[in-house]
Computed example of a mutant assay.
Amino acid sequence: MIDTTTRRPLRVSTDGTAGPYIMVPVSQLDRVRRLLLDNKIPHRVDEDAISLGGNPAVVVIDLVRSDDAERTQAILDANA
């Protein structure tokens, strides 16, 4: 899936200690959540959206299980 703000593919990030997550423009949140729900991928959406430097707001979706990172990336890629 392409990020409508950056025009780059959405990526599951696995860096850091917080576990895998996806940063998604708020405008695409419902579509990404639907993909996750349809594919039974447990996740949590952070309550706060972040907007830096006047850019469109972004929300973080935390994947509950670290073993879902590769599978989730494949689903995002297949829905570009």
Score class of each variant (00 low, 15 high):
2 I>N: 10
3 D>Q: 10
3 D>L: 07
5 T>K: 06
6 T>Q: 08
6 T>M: 09
7 R>W: 13
7 R>H: 13
9 P>S: 09
9 P>D: 14
11 R>E: 03
11 R>C: 02
13 S>V: 07
16 G>T: 01
16 G>E: 02
17 T>K: 15
19 G>Y: 15
19 G>A: 09
22 I>F: 09
24 V>N: 00
29 L>W: 05
30 D>Y: 09
30 D>E: 14
31 R>G: 02
33 R>F: 02
33 R>G: 03
34 R>I: 08
34 R>Q: 12
34 R>K: 11
35 L>I: 12
37 L>N: 07
39 N>M: 03
40 K>T: 08
40 K>L: 10
45 V>M: 02
45 V>W: 01
46 D>W: 14
47 E>V: 13
48 D>A: 14
51 S>G: 13
52 L>R: 11
54 G>K: 06
54 G>R: 05
55 N>W: 09
58 V>T: 14
58 V>R: 11
59 V>K: 04
60 V>W: 07
63 L>N: 00
64 V>H: 04
64 V>G: 00
64 V>K: 05
65 R>T: 03
65 R>N: 06
65 R>C: 04
65 R>G: 00
68 D>G: 00
69 A>N: 08
70 E>D: 13
70 E>R: 10
71 R>E: 04
73 Q>R: 06
73 Q>Y: 08
73 Q>T: 02
74 A>I: 03
75 I>K: 00
75 I>N: 03
78 A>H: 00
79 N>R: 03
80 A>S: 10
